[in-house]
């Protein structure tokens, strides 16, 4: 990776972190558990890297096996995380 692209990624990291702090500070305590399970699902974004890692041919490749392991785990995170968050938020009702 060139120094230029590293700096761009660093910009993205810092701006996104700042945005994250601003946004999440406004989330009321009532919603902290769904926030955490929802962000759990978002951290499953590694699924993108896992899919690319599975793009190796042949099952003799260590990289491929690692990619497949990552893909299963990240999918559990994504699917499980979003589903359970929805299940919780469905219960929040105002009478």
């Amino acid at each position: 990776m060139s120094a230029e692209s590293f700096i761009i990624l660093l910009y993205i990291l810092i701006l996104a972190s700042y945005l994250g702090f601003e946004l999440i500070n406004k989330v009321p305590p009532t919603l902290h558990t769904p926030l955490m399970s929802g962000s759990n699902a978002i951290s499953g974004i590694t699924i993108v890297g896992a899919i690319l890692a599975c793009n190796e041919l042949g099952f003799v490749s260590v990289s491929k096996w690692l990619g497949m392991l990552a893909l299963i785990l990240a999918t559990i995170n994504v699917v499980g995380g979003y589903t359970v968050t929805d299940r919780m938020l469905k219960m929040f009702k105002k009478k």
Binding site: S5, F21, L23, L35, S43
Partner: peptide
């Protein structure tokens, strides 16, 4: 992986935690 979407989402989750 030089992938922006991972960095953005990871940063959001990191900040939240």
């Amino acid at each position: 992986l030089n992938n922006n979407v991972l960095i953005v989402s990871g940063a959001l989750v990191g900040a939240s935690g």
